[in-house]
């Protein structure tokens, strides 16, 4: 078991290999479909001019992203009426939807990792190698279990994206995950898919 504290150094990330179980502690932020599109359109490709509190929010988030991780998660949150937020259920969402954006986001903001489920594609894997980042796989659906590792909600940005799509800043202790894509080009998802493809071909030969 690897115990990792956020922000994570490049050296620690390069020491991780596919299959390593890890426990993450420190400050992380959530971000999924709307956030990735917003980051790329507004700050990376700049095809949309910043609006409202965009510039203020990105300046607040930059130090958290440098050496940090983005968690692909749309949580169930209590305390929405009072602002005294607490995470009730917070498992990972399917990461592959961020494949068109993830490599750019990792490189532009200096992420050391993303957390999600289901794995990601070749562009993200290449960015992990280049930047020194990994893909942490959390257990899909284990939402109550994971929410217990969220000790405090430190803040929320872009709540107008909706509760699941907002950027939640979290303090976590011993958040459980497994490295399934490392910074050396290894991907458990590629291996499993190749084996499954061979098995499928054999099953389709049978009648």
């Amino acid at each position: 078991m690897k115990n990792l504290t956020l922000p994570i150094s490049e050296e620690d990330i390069r020491g991780l290999k596919v299959g390593d179980p890890a426990l993450l502690s420190g400050v992380m932020l959530t971000g999924r479909d709307a956030v990735h599109k917003w980051l790329v359109d507004t700050f990376i490709e700049q095809k949309r001019t910043p609006q409202g509190d965009d510039l203020e929010v990105i300046e607040t988030l930059k130090p958290l992203m440098a050496g940090g991780v983005i968690y692909h998660c749309g949580p169930v949150v209590s305390g929405l009426d009072t602002g005294d937020y607490s995470f009730v259920a917070a498992g990972p969402t399917t990461s592959i939807r961020e494949e068109p954006y993830q490599a750019q986001v990792i490189k532009a903001f200096g992420l050391r990792g993303v957390i999600g489920k289901g794995g990601m594609g070749p562009a993200t894997l290449a960015a992990c190698q280049e930047q020194g980042a990994v893909y942490f796989h959390a257990i899909g659906g284990a939402a109550t279990l994971i929410a217990k590792t969220v000790k405090k909600v430190l803040g929320v940005y872009k709540l107008d994206f909706g509760v699941p799509e907002a950027i939640w800043v979290l303090e976590v202790v011993d958040f459980p995950a497994v490295v399934t894509m490392d910074s050396h080009g290894g991907s458990l998802h590629d291996e499993v898919e190749r084996r499954s493809e061979t098995a499928l071909a054999a099953l389709l030969l049978k009648m």
Binding site: G74, V76, V88, A89, A143, P176
Partner: peptide, 28 residues
């Protein structure tokens, strides 16, 4: 194996969700 660990975490989560009346999965 990672697969077995995943199932064990899943079952632990199922018990916790039932005990606390919280969603099994955040995507309801």
């Amino acid at each position: 194996s990672s697969g077995r660990a995943a199932l064990e975490a899943i079952l632990q989560n199922v018990e916790m969700a039932r005990a606390g009346s919280t969603p099994i999965c955040q995507d309801t």
